[in-house]
Nucleic acid binder design. Structure first.
Length: 594
RNA sequence: GGUCUCGUAGCUCAGCUGGAUAGAGCAGCAGCCUUCUAAGCUGCGGGUCGCAGGUUCGAGUCCUGCCGGGAUCACCA
């Protein structure tokens, strides 16, 4: 809102001086860089052309006018084409008084509330969750929470890929070589089923080798291997509703869901609704029929159905196989429409890796061809892969970083570090383990979420995730120190009752902090618009860093001037509240002591 | 090969959508705990923003071309 006030003031000054309307797109205020005096800066270069004046003169004139007209503008200075404006303390103090006790904040430019369905996670039931899923889950969950904080109605959904040839492979392997329940095997259900999948692959490869030794070409061997034929037979039986196969399928998927639930719980993510592909994979066929009848699609000689996107620079896309069965995109057409109707969604966000950019491009184009106006409301939140030093994670090469293992490792590191520092000494065991959980997962979440979702990121398992510097625990620690400070203030009766006494002049460090806190709502809206928790994460770091500098150099409880002491205490509380709120949106819990 | 995408300090990342002398953390070195929690704070060193052009008052950011990495172009999902 400061921005809005300044903009209006600027336009007013501009018109008064030059009897012209300034080009709105050039009126952009930015935070003044710390090495200069001022709070907000506008660059006047763009206006020189219109007015044929030197930038320094222009800035000087506009600055004078602004100062003359607005009490808010305390002073100004001009450096080259930059007009630096100092905002009066009364504004900052007003903002401070109004917000310092708030524990909930909303975005600055509260946009009109939308109904947004966001799909994330979308696991396969033949593999346990790994680091890639962690990024997906944290991102999806956090973006959903951020959008809520921006005033939207958000529905979190998950679409589980629970059917298809891959799960049949696990089932077959279990029949042949497994036979144990997760309890008997003493492992999580998703892990057990994952192992069966790997086992299938191993045995299958052996068969291919054997066939090759008989002189059969590799691709043919791959198709003719008995295990593959059996798996395919199983899939046919599944589709036909064979009760034995269905029973086995339900049992094994049940194991997997139990395992997934454990992982989701610890990770702290949740869903309003979980869809299963076994229920949705047939959707979309009607839409294909519809497209056929209105000429959007066409049938080839073998009976398969296609959509021609060549005039849009893409290729032909298969929508139904010759035998009438559907493919991946067929179901996506169907689920999109289903979801659209079910939730009357204004927007549907899909959190899916950037390897599927092409798929979503095609999906939207096909929906448009079908005359679905809501195709525009589909948004692919395309995020980058998590890579290891040696490149992509490959399940076959055993280089995947397992989600459960990683979380456990993080919590264990937190336990060790905290104990070494002697910080757990006074805690009872239950509180202590809760703290380790907070810190370990806080470190992990911050590590993942602080990087721009769009970018590929690197994870080095050899170096454990840091707890010092730009990290989750650093921010948590800052919060804990503030809480401790406030506890002390309470117990010694130093806590100011309500409002703080009047302050003659806002000290510099406090001023800096208030300015940063003022930026929070803007950051919140930016992180929503950009679907980027990273903006919030980086903001939290800046705020914590700024506070630590303040904390280091300025006494709070020891300050003798009552007004200043009250200001500092309230300010500390304000910082803690903001950190806690932002942390919540990233799924990071903030400890009261650590 | 076509399309898309990325390239910033030894390493991991920022850089507010075109603005001032490109910033943090880690790693290295040097300091700060009889004072509100040292998971902290302060300082030092470290850069041809992949390369070359172009657009303009102004480019790490925009456009073009190279070089290098990745993804994708399935009757897999």
């Amino acid at each position: 809102m400061l921005d809005t006030i300044l903009k209006e003031a600027f336009i007013e000054a501009y018109q008064a001086l030059y009897e012209k309307h300034p080009d709105l797109k050039h009126i952009v205020f930015q935070a003044t860089r710390p090495e200069f005096r001022g709070d907000a800066t506008i660059v006047v270069f763009p206006f020189t052309k219109d007015l044929k004046k030197a930038p320094e003169i222009l800035a000087q004139e506009l600055g004078s006018k602004l100062k003359e007209n607005h009490r808010l503008v305390r002073d100004f200075n001009v450096i080259k084409g930059f007009l630096n404006i100092e905002i009066d303390d009364s504004y900052w103090l007003g903002f401070f008084r109004k917000n310092s006790d708030k524990t909930s904040f909303c975005a600055e430019f509260s946009p009109s509330s939308k109904r947004i369905v966001i799909e994330y996670s979308s696991p396969n039931t033949n593999k346990p969750l790994h680091l890639g899923h962690i990024r997906n889950n944290l991102l999806g969950w956090s973006v959903a929470e951020i959008l809520k904080a921006n005033g939207h109605k958000v529905i979190k959904v998950n679409l589980v890929n629970d059917r298809g040839i891959h799960i049949c492979k696990s089932m077959l392997a279990w029949q042949k070589w497994g036979g144990m329940t997760p309890e008997q095997a003493g492992m999580k259900g998703d892990k057990l089923v994952g192992e069966m999948y790997v086992r299938f692959d191993k045995e299958y490869k052996k068969e291919i080798e054997a066939l090759k030794n008989e002189g059969i070409a590799e691709d043919e061997a791959a198709r003719k291997a008995p295990l593959m034929l059996e798996a395919q037979e199983m899939l046919r039986k599944w589709e036909a509703g064979d009760s034995d196969v269905r029973q086995l399928w339900e049992m094994m998927n049940g194991w997997v869901y139990e395992g997934f639930d454990t992982t989701y719980n610890r990770l702290g993510v949740d869903f309003e609704k979980i869809y299963h592909e076994s229920e949705t994979y047939l959707l979309g066929k009607d839409m294909v029929a519809q497209g056929l009848s209105n000429g959007a699609f066409y049938r080839k000689e073998d009976g398969s159905v296609w959509c021609d996107l060549r005039d849009e620079g893409l290729d032909e896309k298969l929508l139904l196989r010759a035998d009438g069965t559907s493919v991946y995109i067929t179901q996506d057409l169907g689920t999109a429409e289903q979801r659209m109707q079910e939730y009357e969604a204004d927007q549907m966000i899909y959190v899916v890796g950037n390897e599927q950019n092409y798929h979503f491009d095609v999906l939207k184009r096909i929906l448009k061809k079908l005359g679905k106006p809501w195709a525009e409301n589909i948004e692919h939140l395309s995020y980058g892969m998590v890579e290891l030093p040696e490149g992509k994670m490959k399940s076959r090469e055993g280089t995947v970083v397992d989600a459960d293992d990683l979380m456990e490792e993080m919590v264990e590191t937190a336990r060790r570090t905290t104990t070494e520092l002697g910080k757990a000494d006074e805690l009872d065991p239950a509180d202590a383990s809760q703290l380790f959980e907070m810190i370990g997962l806080g470190a992990l979440k911050y590590f993942i979420l602080k990087v721009d979702p769009k970018k590929t990121m690197l994870f080095n398992p050899a170096e454990s995730i840091d707890f010092n510097g730009n990290t989750g625990p650093f921010i948590q620690y800052t919060h804990a120190r503030i809480r401790s400070l406030l506890r002390k203030a309470e117990s010694t009766g130093l806590m100011p009752a309500n409002d703080i006494p009047p302050i003659a002049q806002l000290p510099e460090k406090e001023r800096q902090l208030i300015k940063l806190l003022h930026q929070y709502s803007y950051t919140l809206s930016q992180s929503g618009e950009n679907r980027s928790p990273a903006l919030l994460a980086n903001y939290m770091y800046d705020l914590a860093k700024e506070f630590n500098q303040f904390y280091q150099s300025e006494p709070v409880l020891r300050e003798e001037n009552e007004a200043i002491r009250a200001l500092r205490l309230k300010l500390s509380g304000f910082v803690a509240n903001t950190l806690r709120h932002a942390g919540q949106l990233l799924g990071m819990k903030m400890p009261d002591r650590m």
